[in-house]
């Protein structure tokens, strides 16, 4: 149901993770993982529960430090010190819990901890206007930016969280299981939103998922993470859900 756009011009490589390893005590969470993403590209990072997706995300967002390997942003090696540091470099994440506050209206969630103020006072009108503009720009339809977030549907909430992340100077957007716990119609809306973000061409999106069939259409390229290693990296046009499933099933058979 996602309208495929033409494959965009391959942009410049904005984020590269090179030979990253991470151990937690006796457990090796990631082993020699190399991954890269270009602007205007949507990379699907697929893998089972426990494959190491969460650890990889947390390293890219500055939450964990890798034991070895390096992270390059725009080709320059960077040691991410903290989540705030990664954010300042344009790496934004939308976590599964979305980090929304149900009790606050949409526009205050949109500007959470980035409120517009005049002296000590909030600029409610300006924040409402800009939130409405930003949501309109990426085609999100919500009843009112003044509505409390708790009154919105799962898809609308996800869309607001994505819009908020994009509205910063984001260059790399990580979406952690954006389709989890979402119906087909709402999931479709989110996939179309991701597609619109791709066509902007200035953003690299890493889409983390464990349901392959949902995301194959929207991804330009697919990486499969198994047991802490990237075992598969190919443009999505050159693979299929069947092939990916076969790879994973093979793992179960030999396990």
């Amino acid at each position: 149901m996602t309208e495929q756009t033409d494959p965009p011009e391959p942009g410049t490589e904005v984020l590269r993770v090179e030979r990253i390893s991470k151990r937690f005590g006796p457990v090796t969470a990631l082993r020699d993982v190399t991954l890269s993403v270009r602007t205007g590209e949507v990379l699907g990072l697929l893998g089972d529960n426990g494959a190491g997706k969460s650890t990889l995300i947390k390293i890219v967002t500055g939450f964990h430090r890798p034991d070895s390997g390096r992270i390059l942003i725009d080709g320059r090696e960077i040691a991410l010190r903290s989540v705030a540091h990664a954010r300042s470099l344009g790496i934004e994440t939308v976590y599964q819990d979305l980090a929304l506050v149900d009790e606050l209206p949409v526009y205050l969630n949109f500007f959470l901890n980035k409120e517009l103020t005049a002296g000590p006072f909030l600029r409610h009108t300006a924040m409402r206007r800009r939130a409405a503009e930003a949501l309109g720009e990426i085609g999100i339809d919500i009843p009112s930016v003044g509505a409390e977030v708790r009154t919105l549907s799962g898809g609308q909430r996800q869309a607001i969280a994505v819009a908020r992340a994009v509205n910063t100077a984001a260059r790399v957007l990580l979406l952690d299981e954006p389709l989890a716990a979402m119906g087909a119609r709402e999931g479709g809306q989110i996939l179309r939103l991701i597609d619109r973000l791709r066509t902007r061409g200035d953003l690299a999106v890493i889409l983390i998922a464990h349901n392959y069939s949902q995301v194959m259409d929207v991804c330009d390229r697919v990486n499969l993470l198994q047991h802490g290693e990237i075992t598969f990296d190919r443009p999505s046009a050159e693979t299929s859900v069947a092939e990916l499933l076969e790879l994973v099933h093979a793992e179960y058979r030999t396990a």
């Binding site: 976590y95 819990d97 506050v101 149900d102 606050l104 901890n113 000590p120 909030l122 409610h124």
Partner: peptide, 24 residues
């Protein structure tokens, strides 16, 4: 109603985890 403190108070009580993830 009209200062960041008020928004932070509502966020801290409404969803402390979300508030912290937003850097509050």
């Amino acid at each position: 109603s009209y200062t960041k403190y008020g928004v932070y108070a509502q966020a801290s009580g409404g969803n402390p985890l979300s508030a912290a993830e937003s850097g509050i």
